[in-house]
């Protein structure tokens, strides 16, 4: 991608994340620094419990940050109200839907809520955006199904369509590939890359599929308890950022095959 055309949309400076307890805040991770552009696919990787979900939730302002600054197009997210934020960031979460009786169509239309009036009337633009999203993710045949009729992979694609219909510059996905087989994992991640590059959006997702992420992503954020590093997969391999990601008693990162191998 031509760097001159890059449009910086997200900037994170000296960010500390964690949970606010009454006396002492529980710090999960600190000194997170990176910026990201439109049309970029960014993976957040790291071991269990290292703070990937916490970081994503903090970016989306679902939980407050402890220190530092998050800015979207130069504006601090603290200054944005919920509706303004909902027009900038859409989310795909891991949580199970409380009602699976919605039709796919109804679910995707809900994505337009930040743009509709007080009672949620759809304008022609809203309908056009929804139809565009439906065609881009190729789920036309699922439209009239109800969510309980869908497989995990189909439901995930529907949730991504909903986020796409929300038409935000940034889409954040928390572990979008869990519970999926390797083919559908690849399919979802390929779709995300497609969305980032073709629709010129910043797509941030957390994942345990480090191997696939290395092959697909423009940039990666490698989170460890001690530090968080940001860079392109090639740079990160060169700087041996993956080598000490996990305890080294069982698996090792092999930089030739760009994947983890069992220790022999």
């Amino acid at each position: 991608m031509n760097s001159a055309k890059k449009h910086k949309v997200l900037e994170v400076q000296q960010l500390s994340i964690g949970y606010e307890k009454r006396s002492t805040p529980l710090l999960i991770s600190k000194d997170i620094d990176f910026s990201a552009h439109k049309g970029e696919l960014l993976a957040v990787v790291g071991g269990n419990g290292v703070g990937k979900s916490t970081l994503l939730r903090t970016l989306a302002k679902v939980q407050p940050l402890l220190q530092g600054r998050i800015a979207i197009e130069g504006r601090d997210i603290q200054d944005l109200n919920l509706r303004q934020l909902a027009q900038k960031i859409s989310l795909v979460l891991t949580e199970i839907l409380p009602t699976k009786n919605l039709t796919v169509k109804e679910l995707i239309v809900l994505g337009r809520q930040p743009h509709t009036n007080w009672i949620g009337t759809l304008s022609e633009e809203d309908i056009a955006k929804v139809e565009h999203a439906i065609h881009q993710v190729e789920i036309v045949d699922l439209l009239d199904k109800r969510c309980y009729e869908l497989s995990d992979g189909q439901l995930q694609r529907v949730m991504i369509t909903r986020a796409l219909a929300q038409d935000t510059d940034i889409i954040i996905l928390d572990e979008p590939t869990t519970h999926l087989d390797i083919y559908h994992k690849a399919k979802i991640l390929k779709l995300l890359k497609d969305i980032a590059h073709r629709s010129n959006k910043l797509v941030i997702f957390s994942s345990h599929e480090i191997d696939i992420a290395i092959q697909l992503c423009d940039n990666m954020l490698v989170m460890q308890e001690s530090k968080t590093v940001h860079g392109s997969p090639k740079e990160l391999i060169k700087s041996k950022s993956f080598d000490h990601l996990f305890p080294e008693d069982l698996i090792l990162f092999d930089s030739n095959t760009e994947s983890f191998k069992m220790k022999s």
Binding site: A60, V62, L82, R83, L85, A86, Q87, I89, S90, L91, L93, E95, L110, G111, Q113, P114, Q166
Partner: peptide, 8 residues
């Protein structure tokens, strides 16, 4: 959480 992400 989704509701909040939709601006509610």
């Amino acid at each position: 959480n989704y509701a909040q992400s939709l601006g509610v």
